[in-house]
Simulated assay, not measured.
Amino acid sequence: MASSSTPSTTKQWVLANRPTAAPILSGDDATFKLQEASLPALKDGQILGKVLYFSNDTGLRNFIQSTVAEERFYVPMVPLGSPMRSGIIAEVVASASDKFKVGDNVLDFHLGAWSEYVVLEAANSQPLAPLPAGLSATHFLGALGASGLAAYSGLHFAAQTKPEHTVVISAAAGATGNMAIQIAAKLIGAKRVIGIAGSDEKCAWVKKLGAHECLNYKSPTFAADLKAATPDEVDVYFDNAGGEILDLMLTRMKKGGEIAVCGAVSTYNSGQPTVLRNWFEVVSMRINIRGFIMLDYMDKVPAILGELIGAIADGRIVLQDAETIVEARIEEQPEVWMRLFSGGNQGKLITKLII
């Protein structure tokens, strides 16, 4: 069913050019192009959603250009001329599905688009359950979405983190990092949890979340600070950064230490190959490096969400200040997303779309 005001067109951003370094936001070589597109008639099992929120994630950079061959990438990349993808929360404005009615709010983790209105498959869309303490449903895009699930699965399954471990987490003030700090410190009870973030202010917040220490990687004394903070070396490194921080962390790992690689945000826009001067540490110290993605553990998602929601309800996990929500028109979305790469967020960066 649909109302008489159901739109027939939408503004949307499409991928116009694949970037080789940082995405370009204007000019003839701009990475994205804003266009007006027709909305197709709904088929059985589809819904039309008015987008309320976009999920902004650094990993989307790899959806538009990656050093990994397309046939080896873990999800289909965005084809040229197609809408830019992202997680969304949307309000149903028309439905050809028994699963949702007009007025329902739905979540789509990855198959939404940078568009004012989107046609979604009802089977791939999730209803939004109420959260404890009146928390905003936007947390389903972050702490209770792909970010939180990645933090949990990386620590528990990829790295096999235990209470006796010393754990270091990079990008600790980001969407995944802040949840990894809290999961390591409060759910696993790791002996020592150390965050790495990009400012003293962010480090102060990370320590409030439960980290025993947090180090500012922009400090000229960062290398010495890291050594001083890890006198017994490191059992588990949860890597969101890659690049120079990963290179330095190789020198602090225990023999047989575990590195769970979630991302490499420092390298996505560099346009240069990653250089690891300390790579032979992997051999010398028998370091285990394991890449992972949250999608590997979809069968465990209900149990993970149950544990995380329980921890939020009893106060072990705190979501206060864990979102940066930016109100913006569709024309501004690429600029909002790019704030991720300059540290313009604390916790999850979300766009509240103004239509």
Rank of each mutant, 00 (worst) to 15 (best):
S342N: 14
V193W: 07
G315H: 03
T166W: 04
G306N: 14
R329Q: 05
L34E: 03
D239I: 06
L319C: 08
N124G: 14
G189V: 07
D225E: 14
E71H: 01
F238S: 09
A190L: 12
K254L: 08
A129Q: 13
G347V: 00
P130H: 09
V167G: 05
K101N: 09
T351K: 04
A143R: 00
D235S: 11
P231Q: 09
L48F: 00
A180F: 03
D314F: 00
S26T: 07
P334E: 01
N278E: 03
E281Y: 04
E244Q: 08
I196E: 05
R290Y: 13
A90Q: 08
D57A: 09
A228D: 06
A158P: 11
L187Y: 01
A158W: 02
M253R: 11
L34H: 06
P132H: 01
N178W: 07
G263I: 12
A322T: 10
I181D: 01
P40Y: 11
L34A: 02
L107F: 10
L141K: 06
A197M: 07
P79T: 05
K254I: 14
V93S: 12
G347I: 00
V14Y: 12
T9S: 07
K352R: 14
G27W: 00
E327Q: 10
A260E: 01
S97N: 07
A229R: 05
R61M: 12
A264C: 10
L246Y: 02
D98P: 12
H110M: 15
L226M: 07
P79D: 08
P19W: 09
F54H: 09
I188T: 12
V336A: 06
L25Y: 08
N288Q: 15
G49Q: 10
S26H: 15
G103R: 05
G177Q: 04
L250V: 11
L349W: 04
A158H: 08
Y152L: 02
I169H: 10
A190W: 08
G27C: 09
V236G: 00
A133M: 12
Q12Y: 12
K218A: 12
N269T: 00
E281L: 15
R290C: 12
G271A: 13
A328I: 04
P334F: 05
D225G: 13
G59S: 02
G142F: 10
G189H: 04
I89F: 08
A184G: 03
L144N: 03
V68R: 06
A21G: 14
I287V: 13
A16N: 04
P130G: 10
S125C: 13
E327Y: 11
D296T: 15
N216L: 03
L319K: 13
G243M: 01
K191L: 12
K11G: 08
G263V: 01
A143Q: 02
I88P: 04
M298L: 15
V14W: 06
I289K: 00
K50Y: 03
S153H: 08
W337R: 07
V102P: 01
F100A: 02
I304P: 10
A41G: 15
M294N: 07
A146N: 12
A241E: 12
A22W: 08
A137H: 13
A241C: 05
F341D: 04
V301P: 01
A69D: 15
N269R: 10
S26E: 10
A151D: 10
I287K: 11
R286V: 14
A175Q: 00
N17Y: 00
G112Q: 09
R252I: 08
D299C: 10
N56M: 06
